[in-house]
């Protein structure tokens, strides 16, 4: 069955889309790839020259690492795939950001916007994230090395702050028995149903969270409204941290997934799978389904 993808909404950092014609395993593979395998840029190494603030160096380093950076995936490569293979990287696999702030007569907050990047395309997604607050005379100076990385290594490289899917709902109304009392319409908190010509109508099935309230409140026995789950259709909701546009996270996840499938196919064709599955062979027989 051909797979069907439909864009439902794209607002700011959030994308909603429908994937039809796949199973839960595929939907979850896509979700996990978006969370853990799509590269983004984050600060990974920090050389602190001066820190007389009230926060210790490691807390500063942690906070600076968590600042999402706008990522230019087309100009940079992952350090492990870069030809240079050096500790601090080269211009293809890292961006250097510097910060030099000293508080004068008044206390002042050091913001992410005080970071000076060598690449104007790789900057913090928001210039207003506080890093530390300095009392008069205190100073913070450091050099930061930002690299591409993936979420499975550290959550700071995760491109998403929310990435979820749920099954599509299917609501059916028995028009002959329905009295048009409207209690199901009132019970729905998500605007799925509306009353039209004294009959409930489904107007926005993609907003249904499968709560079942509409069925519960129906005064008829059995209810004249039913709510089913479409097993092979999924609604995804993805919120970007701002590092990448949400639609790019999805397309990039598909690319990464295809790359991994190609790798798997290559291993199968070259007969390299035997050594991969060798440790699990005894286990399969124990479970009683040993045929491969």
């Amino acid at each position: 069955m051909p797979m069907e993808v439909k864009l439902l909404s794209l607002e700011g950092d959030t994308i909603r889309f429908l994937v039809k014609g796949c199973d839960t395993a595929f939907a979850n593979a896509l979700r996990r790839t978006m969370i853990a395998e799509v590269p983004t840029m984050a600060i990974d190494d920090l050389f602190i020259f001066d820190n007389s603030s009230v926060l210790p160096d490691e807390v500063i380093a942690h906070r600076v690492g968590l600042i999402p950076l706008k990522t230019d995936l087309d100009s940079y490569v992952l350090p492990e795939r870069c030809e240079c293979q050096s500790d601090l990287g080269c211009s293809l696999c890292r961006v250097v950001l510097t910060l030099d702030v000293e508080a004068g007569e008044e206390s002042r907050t050091v913001y992410s916007g005080d970071l000076v990047s060598e690449d104007p395309a790789v900057v913090p997604v928001s210039p207003k994230i506080p890093i530390v607050k300095l009392a008069p005379g205190q100073a913070l100076r450091f050099e930061a090395y930002a690299r591409l990385g993936v979420g499975k290594d550290h959550a700071k490289w995760q491109p998403v702050s929310m990435c979820i899917y749920q099954n599509l709902a299917d609501i059916g109304i028995d028009e002959d028995r329905c009295t048009g009392c409207g209690s199901c319409v009132d019970a729905c908190r998500y605007g799925v149903l509306t009353l039209e010509d004294d009959k409930p109508r489904v107007v926005d099935i993609y907003s249904c969270l499968l709560c079942g309230s509409c069925v519960e409140v129906c005064p008829l026995k059995p209810p004249a409204i039913r709510q089913d789950v479409v097993e092979d259709a999924f609604i995804f909701k993805v919120e970007s941290t701002g590092a990448l546009p949400p639609e790019r996270i999805v397309t990039e996840a598909v690319r990464v997934l295809l790359e991994k499938l190609d790798e798997l196919e290559g291993k199968v064709k070259r007969g390299e799978m035997d050594e991969e599955i060798e440790p699990f062979k005894g286990l399969e027989e124990e479970l009683g389904h040993a045929q491969t």
Partner: peptide, 10 residues
């Protein structure tokens, strides 16, 4: 969840 909230505090 990992959403940036630091910039909203002030």
């Amino acid at each position: 969840c990992g959403k940036v909230i630091g910039d909203k505090w002030e």
